[in-house]
Design a protein around this nucleic acid. Structure first.
Lengths: 193, 193, 193, 193
DNA sequence: CGGTAAACGAGACGGTACGTCCCGTCTTCGT
DNA sequence: ACGAAGACGGGACGTACCGTCTCGTTTACCG
């Protein structure tokens, strides 16, 4: 029985991949998104354009991969024994992560592009759904501990947290400070009764 | 004392303006935003490209002006005598307006572009601030009628309404139905005590 | 008996005409021809664009009219009694007129445009034919005085003079100096036998 | 000693060059020069506009290169043993080439544009200087054979031939027939003694 | 160790939208 | 009615990116 040859030729260059991701992060952080061209990323990374097109469908896909790589150091889900404390900590940490001058512009770019490219939209949903799930778990833990009634509208509370986050991020019409996080958390806890 | 002449030469053609706005609305409704070119709008409107560039900085500015013009037929601020009823009516109407297949894609396009163009960002803020102000007035009326305590967090409630609206619109991860509007309103009323 | 009114309304403004001609001469002398726009001439002359289009078919027609106005002070036909002297004087004066830094660029512009616009071509021919006729008269006088044989090729000699003039003007590949004029004249006299 | 790499990346596409030159010749032959747009040449050649701008500064530069390429099939310099015969043959062939309905309009366009664009002026000079040199060689051969005196004004004779050619071509005020060529040649031979 | 195949940096390619410029016409108001 | 001002419909310009396609070189496996 003959074994089909699996792969011949040169393998993917990991250095080129890293250089491309780093270059994309750098350029998207410091330039307007339409000024970040594939050619510019290639030049910045010292890489050929074709190498980029071989591995990524668009410049935004590069950005998303780069941010996912960064996000490996994921915000841990807090577990202090109290919904109020867990929620406050989670929201505060989430707001802090999003408001940073380094990641805020990148998040804006991704939402912007997601409205134009369904592929990016899907990838961004997967990215955000992981965080939604984490926050949902925190609230549900409150239910199972008896702090909250079983009919607590978990989804709606989660929605409101991330909705306010993105709303202020995208429209730049409100703070994402620790204080803002606490005010929102307090309001939501009151909602949850 | 001599009066300085204020303006000489031909005046702006209002017909050309209207035709351009209508053409932009039509094209943005039926095509993907990057397929809507300035040249196409000009052709559809029977107008020269230069006439467009003379009056608008970008095709998105045209769209925004067209939508503002439409919004003159503004959703009226309800005044039933009860905050609960007013709020419910306002939010339901707002959600209904935003979820329509005709305007939803246009709103997405504008937010998307606002992330890339500070001019559009500013104009969009003015557009949305008018609606924020209207909703704020509804809540404040509840305060002045004594239905709500004077320390009611008006801004935060307004934020939550529009935040959820845009969040679900942009991420397509939740309904903007009448039921959804009622659920959100109920939660916010509970929050307001 | 009632007199029919022959003309009503404001008459053509001679000042505007002069200002336009002067502005055209100035701009064509100092700028590349395609940088001389009708709008620029109008602005330079302090005149409306429509006023120009009312009276001239193109910017080159303005230039041609301006040069014809200038050419009223026409080079007089010399008559010294000798073909040799007359010819030398005529050619020298003609070369001197054409090589001047003020008119040379204008002549180039007119020939250039004449290749694209048959109207200008015709007007330029009328302009140049008047000079051809003058030079032809000089040579024919030599025939009638018996200095030249009756079969002298008058037209060919005239052609050679103006041909060399325009050739050197347009290709910038030879002088239009007094010396050059004399050399050409001598050659032609030898040719005439 | 290490050899530096001379060129990387894709090379210029000779087919695209040929297609562009051919398209330019075709369009300039059948349309008025200002109706020949760069976009039209690109479309006719099946080539991108940028490819044209990468290699040529203007549509007239394309035309000039196309004509130079054609001129490779150069009119051979005659060598019959007699200046009179050589000169007659050269001038007749040159006139014949220039008067043809195919090339005459192109020559007019190039002279016209040369007056507006110094780059074209320079390139056209190189083009014409090659023919001047060829004719000069014919006359100088007459000197070296002793048919003409060493002080024969070679340059002036060459000037007169091409001057008359261009003069009649540009002003359309005289024939470029074989008869005209012979008359001019005879006159110049008489000048040369 | 020599052959073969894929990935690489570089950059030209066909294509398309951009925003600017000028054309010649039309409109407004003032003389 | 004429004149200056300037907006209009139209269309070519030259530029910038897109994503694809050669180039010649480098790398890695496989016989």
């Amino acid at each position: 029985m003959s074994q089909q040859r699996l792969h011949t030729g040169r393998r993917r260059n990991e250095e080129a991949r890293q250089a491309t991701l780093a270059a994309a992060l750098r350029l998207f952080a410091e330039r307007r998104p339409d000024e970040v061209t594939v050619a510019a990323i290639a030049a910045e990374a010292g890489v050929g354009k074709q190498t980029i097109y071989r591995w990524w469908p668009s410049k935004y896909a590069i950005l998303l991969e780069a941010m996912t790589d960064l996000g490996q150091s994921e915000v841990p889900v807090p577990d202090t024994g109290s919904v109020a404390a867990d929620l406050t900590e989670f929201v505060t940490a989430t707001f802090a992560g999003a408001r940073s001058a380094r990641v805020a512009p990148l998040l804006r770019v991704l939402v912007s592009e997601a409205q134009r490219d369904t592929g990016i939209h899907t990838m961004l949903r997967e990215f955000t759904d992981r965080r939604r799930e984490a926050l949902g778990a925190v609230v549900r833990r409150g239910v199972s501990r008896g702090e909250l009634t079983p009919d607590a509208p978990v989804g709606l509370v989660v929605d409101q947290v991330f909705a306010v986050l993105w709303y202020r991020l995208l429209f730049d019409n409100g703070p994402l400070s620790d204080t803002a996080a606490r005010q929102l958390t307090d309001a939501l806890l009151k909602q949850l009764g």
